[in-house]
Structures are given as structure tokens and as C-alpha cells.
Amino acid sequence: MSAVEQALPQFSSKRLEEIKTLIARYPHSRSALLPVLHMAQEDFEYLSMDVQKLVAKTLGLHLMAVREVVTFYTMFREKPCGTYLLEVCTNAGCMLNGADELVRHLCDTLEIKVGGTTPDGLFTVTEVECAGACAGAPVVQINNAYHEKVDAAHMDVFITEARGQGGKK
């Protein structure tokens, strides 16, 4: 094994077991690619090129096959983001119920642009497409948990609390 390969990140043995069970659920191991990328993102926070290589190796795929998938799906990140990822739905239902104002409020409060991360690495704000929860518009997903009928005051409380916790999720 060359030095370069050794430097690749590794899955824990527990993860590898999980991946093995997962592969068995499908006719071909390639189907496990999305779930394994979700796992890898959980383990390594984002999908660096090295992590993508690890996934390719684990599933016996060409790195290109992994790259194609990572870049196609919006939930896969190739760069780190803040501890709190605030994803505001701004599609129709939410837009009609104040999502744009909410985004503006978040950006002003945190002094960042959409897509940006606060200098302390705590918050990233992005706009996302319809979250499938329009009755609760506007909707904000915070690290994958849905928060519905959110308003500016709501978010202010959340931000203060999160800052108080000093970056722990």
C-alpha cells in the first residue's frame, strides 16, 4: 500500500459492518452509494475528495461514479459548513408566507450573505427548494430537523441559545 493510500480517511469497523449489511439489501452494491455517502458525510462532516475516494474504494466504484453523484445531489457537501446549517425554504408556499423576509433577517443578524458562514463557524444560511411542509410555511431546516411556522423572533431566540452553547450541536 502506498503512502498516499494510507493517508485516506477510514470508516470505523462498526460502519464497515453497517455498510456490509446495507449492501446486502440491494441487487447490486452500487445502490448503496447514496446511503454510504450519507454515512460518510455524518462521519466526516463533508465529502472531501479523500472521503469520496474512500467511498469509491469501499464500494468498488470508479471515483468518477462517486463524483457524479456527489455533485448531482444538493444534500452532499464538498466543503465544510457551519455547526448550524440553516436551510430556509423560499419556494412558493414559504415565499407567500414571508420566507424572503426571514432570509433577509437571518443574513442581517448574522452579517453574512446567503450561502455564507459566520466567521466563528457557527452558522451557515442557505435557501433551499420546497421542503414538503408548506402548511408550516415558512420552514427552516436546522441540521436536517424541520422547524415550521418560524418567524424572525423565533430565529433570534435560536441564535442566542446556540451562541450560548458555544458551538455544540
Binding site: 470508479h62 468518477m64 463524483r67 457524479e68 455533485t71 448531482f72
Partner: peptide, 15 residues
């Protein structure tokens, strides 16, 4: 398999 299509929409590109 060393050529592929990255991204989607009109950002889609060959790599």
C-alpha cells in the same frame, strides 16, 4: 469510466 457528468441543470459539465 474515467469521463463523467458532474453537477446538473445548466451547471452540468463533462469532467
Amino acid at each position: 469510466g474515467d469521463m463523467g457528468v458532474l453537477d446538473r441543470g445548466d451547471h452540468m459539465r463533462i469532467d
